[in-house]
Design a protein around this nucleic acid. Structure first.
Length: 937
DNA sequence: GTACTCACG
DNA sequence: GACGTACGTGAGTACG
């Protein structure tokens, strides 16, 4: 047991945020050589920490130390005064991804890393200082922040890390003209433009100090304000007494800020050379790595400039012993959980996995939590397992199995660690776990996701499910979930799995996740995808979790009425179809329909597909209908209605959550190869819009009482990206001039004026424009436009003649894919193209995919960037972001906030490419609003 | 479980 | 000269 903090001990408190900003501004904008990740502030921060550790020798060295950070969210001071720090600009874009890295750096140096939601670093420093002073110890605050000077005295002093100057009561007096205990009074009067503390107008530090010296303290001054001789000053103090009192509350630091740890846990520890060198190497700090290695007498790891070959990377993971489940622990009591949590806090990193009763995060209940802190070091915390063979308790609910902690208690213990920004939580598809825990009141902070890491590295090569990743990268076969819960009809839920069996499975998942993280993390920078992971993938976790939990309101009655109408229409159509066919058959069976059409009725339209079955696709049926056949025309009608009914009007009401009364889709971040999201359960990205009948389904997506649905979508975003990446002067100019892009294309191709253009000509040009994005082919265009293939090919030839840059872009992209095995978007997203060097027909598909990926992918990147920035931009409005449909964002807003929302969201969306990329064409966002999605679109 | 069809961008 | 083909998704239904 460590000794309690007290007399003879010396606590150093480092103001982490000040370190970061100082490092950021003091250094040029350094980037990591391998991938361009901005890293200057982290480098400066690490150098300062290292210097601090090296200097920490001699009689004045600390026995205890901690680095304290500001938590990113708002603090209680915003409740006192909403404008507090309101005029402070947001941190620079290239600094933001560095914040979590400075926490990692602190842990790598084995120094305690502290931050608390709702409090500023200054408050925590105050509380620790008071506690340490009261315990009889000494405190040195490493900072030059004047706001901390009120703490000086009684064994607490400050140290300016840059000037190397001690700050004691005398220096504080020099600065404020009063002793430390009256500093807050002076600050309350003088105000602070940087923090937007109002103070008293026209009174600065000099006057404030003079007044406080004269009247003793602020309250006496305000009470006796009428005695002040100078009339203007007197009036100011009388008029602004309340504002001054508020200012005092803003600047005053509170010794009673809650701390959930003891001072003794801050005892100074030697860095673990291995962990520290791993971090520094990963950051590619060459000089510092060598210096640290020298100090520990170990060989400095080599930092290469070139990405390591895949074969070089494999042995690192192979060095670990195979996964051994025998050492897994089941946590059944508080003491055991407390030990694990202490270990996690100390390591600052844990792999976590939640087990639940189902796959729907909005309905499933938590059954258990598994944790892993290292190879073979994993535990399972069962919380909701039901007893074997017990049908239920007196109240009809299933009885809990024995040997489990009370869930409420366990969650209360987990909460501070999971919410601690200084402890990294690694998950596989951690959005799922975030949502489950959020419903239990835990907002996880500092999360990483191995699924998204794999997606950044391997999109296009394979999928990113855990079992697949474990086999590919760890050579490990996971226990299939089927082995525990079965499948099909006899499937049970996870709560019914015996705890011991569940523990092995769950803890293994956590260990696999832990191992995958260690495998992928260094690879991200080696493969130059760390930036796309940090800026395009990781931010989606919280943004989407919030959107999914918000959900969208659906008018079930409207859908049910549509379903009934559809059922009647279908029955009538079925009768008609059977009469035309001369007998009854299943209209929904393509096989039966094909036989009726082509065998019995003898229509033309041969076989297709590997199975030899007739194709009865809309394309085929439309051709037959055009020849004058009624039956296929009626079948098309029937199919249209059947689709709307089964997929939408019947299915959507089943997805309404009984607790929220809303529909909560789930977005897969790593589902599509190009960076697009995919929406499932239900898919809200394919709600009909192209036909009037289908569009009525959108009327069922409604706003809450007093609210409106607001929709903003990018206009022609993919063509704009094409104009930029392929550098097509005519296209760029057209977008800059805001003219009709398809008409312009037609005009250029066919030599006709834009004014009074034949709609048919414009339609053809539009089809070609889209075709280009898809990797155009004569066959495809011919089919799309229903024109002869030769004609389509002639169009394409003309198009390439008029816009030769397009061909050059296509050739360039394919060459890049062939050479590198991947293509990249403007924003650095990497999409692998494994099939590109194949021969034969398959190569065509791979080429088209390679051409399309950078365009579709860049559009996906842009809307992701907008989504990542949106929550902060609209935080002050009574609005919520609900849906993303590739180029569209759907919101719900209080009526009075609609205009503000449109203005702000449009600004965020139109500026989303910047500052990373300055596009040569403007991005334009169209907006609409209404009582429902149909009106808003 | 696979094939077909069709809704979206 | 032939091969096949527009890019990216998810879900419902039939059928083996």
């Amino acid at each position: 047991m460590t000794e309690a903090f007290g007399k003879g001990h010396h606590l150093h408190l480092i103001d982490g945020s000040a370190f970061i900003f100082r490092a950021y501004h003091a250094l040029p904008p350094l980037t990591r050589r391998s991938d361009g990740l901005p890293i200057g502030a982290v480098a400066g921060f690490c150098n300062m920490l290292w210097k601090y550790i090296q200097d920490g020798t001699g009689p004045d060295q600390p026995t205890h130390a901690a680095v304290i950070f500001d938590h990113s969210s708002k603090t209680f001071r915003n409740d006192i005064y909403p404008l507090y720090k309101a005029n402070r600009p947001p941190p620079p874009e290239d600094l933001r991804p560095q914040f979590p890295l400075t926490r990692e750096a602190t842990r790598a140096y084995n120094i305690s890393c502290i931050e608390t939601e709702g409090f500023e670093a200054d408050d925590i420093i105050a509380a620790l200082s008071c506690k340490a002073r009261d315990a009889g110890g000494r405190v040195t605050i490493i900072s030059s922040d004047k706001d901390l000077m009120q703490l000086v005295g009684g064994g607490v002093e400050m140290m300016d890390p840059i000037k190397g100057k001690q700050i004691g009561p005398d220096e504080v007096f020099e600065k404020f003209g009063v002793k430390p205990d009256r500093v807050v009074d002076v600050q309350a009067l003088a105000g602070d433009s940087v923090d937007n503390v109002p103070g008293a107008p026209g009174i600065g530090i000099k006057t404030a100090a003079q007044l406080i010296q004269e009247y003793g303290d602020l309250e006496s001054l305000l009470e006796r304000a009428s005695e002040i001789k100078q009339p203007k000053r007197r009036q100011t103090l009388i008029d602004h007494a309340e504002q001054i009192r508020i200012s005092k509350r803003l600047v005053e630091l509170d010794c009673d800020t809650p701390l959930d740890f003891g001072l003794d846990t801050l005892e100074v520890r030697e860095p673990d050379p291995e962990a520290l060198l791993e971090f520094l190497t990963r950051m590619e700090f060459r000089t510092l790595t060598n210096r640290v290695a020298e100090r520990f007498g170990t060989a400095a790891p080599v930092i290469t400039d070139a990405p390591a070959a895949a074969s070089d990377a494999a042995p690192a993971a192979a060095e670990l012993p195979p996964i051994d489940r025998s050492g897994y622990v089941v946590i059944r009591d508080e003491a055991s959980l407390a030990e694990w949590l202490a270990e996690i806090s100390e390591k600052g990193i844990v792999a976590i996995d939640t087990e639940t009763t189902g796959l729907d995060e909005m309905r499933a209940d938590l059954v258990g939590v598994s944790l892993c802190t290292g190879p073979g070091r994993a535990a399972y915390l069962p919380l909701g397992h039901v007893g074997e063979g017990i049908s239920g308790d007196l109240f009809g609910g299933p009885a809990l199995a024995e040997g489990q902690m009370a869930a409420e208690r366990a969650l209360a213990m987990l909460k501070p660690v999971l919410e601690d920004e200084a402890t990294l939580k690694i998950g596989q598809n951690i959005k799922y776990d975030c949502k489950i825990l959020a419903r239990l009141g835990i907002r996880m902070a500092s999360v990483e996701d191995t699924m998204l890491m794999s997606y950044s590295l391997n999109a296009g090569s394979h999928n990113h499910g855990m079992d697949e990743l474990a086999e590919l990268y760890l050579g490990h076969k996971c226990v299939p979930i089927k082995d525990l819960i079965g499948s099909g009809k006899s499937q049970i839920n996870f709560a019914q799995v015996p705890i011991d069996k569940a523990a092995e499975y769950a803890a293994e998942d956590a260990e696999v996740t832990w191992r995958l993280w260690h495998r992928f993390r260094p690879e991200l920078s080696r493969e130059h995808v760390a930036t796309s992971y940090e800026l395009l993938e990781r931010p989606m976790i919280n943004v989407l979790a919030q959107m999914e939990m918000t959900g969208i309101r659906v008018d079930v009655g409207h859908l049910q009425r549509m379903s009934s109408a559809f059922a009647q229409k279908m029955a009538a159509l079925e009768e008609e179809i059977h009469a035309l066919a001369g007998g009854s058959f299943n209209v929904g069976s393509p096989k039966q329909l094909g036989e009726i059409l082509f065998d019995r009725m003898g229509l033309q339209g041969g076989k297709q597909g590997k199975t030899g079955a007739y194709s009865t696709s809309a394309e085929v049926l439309e051709d037959l209908a055009a020849e004058g056949h009624d039956l296929p025309a009626r079948v098309l009608d029937w199919r249209g209605i059947s689709k709307l009914k089964s997929t939408y009007t019947d299915a959507l009401p089943l997805h309404v959550n009984p607790e929220t009364g809303r529909v909560h889709t789930s977005y897969s971040i790593a589902g599509a190869q190009t960076g697009r999201l995919a929406s499932t359960d239900p898919n809200l990205q394919n709600i009909p819009v192209r036909t009037d009948e289908g569009r009525r389904i959108r009327e069922a997506f409604i706003a809450g009482p007093g609210m409106r649905i607001v929709s903003l979508d990018y206009s022609q975003i993919e063509l704009r990206i094409l104009a930029h990446v392929a550098q097509i002067p005519a296209l760029k100019q057209a977008f800059r001039d805001g003219i009709d892009i398809h008409a312009m294309t037609a005009s250029q191709m066919f030599g006709v004026p834009v004014e009074g253009m034949d709609p048919m000509i414009r339609r053809r040009a539009k089809a070609i424009n889209f075709g280009v994005i898809y990797g155009i082919s004569g066959f495809g265009l011919a089919r799309n436009l229903r024109i002869p293939r030769a004609e389509a090919q002639a169009f394409i030839d003309t198009y390439f003649e008029r816009f030769p840059e397009i061909r050059a872009y296509m050739d360039r992209t394919i060459a890049e894919a062939k050479q590198d095995g991947h293509v990249r978007t403007l924003f650095g997203r990497r999409i692998n193209t494994p099939g590109i060097n194949q021969n034969g027909p398959a190569a065509g598909g791979a080429k088209r995919a390679a051409i399309n990926a950078p365009i579709q992918g860049a559009a996906a990147d842009i809307i992701r960037r907008a989504m990542a920035r949106m929550p902060a931009a609209i935080a002050h409005l009574p609005v919520g972001m609900l849906l993303q449909v590739h180029d569209e964002l759907v919101f719900e807003a209080e009526e009075g906030a609609v205009d503000d929302l449109i203005r702000i969201a449009r600004e965020v969306m139109e500026g989303a490419a910047e500052p990373a990329i300055k596009l040569d064409v403007p991005l334009i966002v169209d907006a609409g609003q209404g009582a429902n999605w149909a009106e808003a679109h």
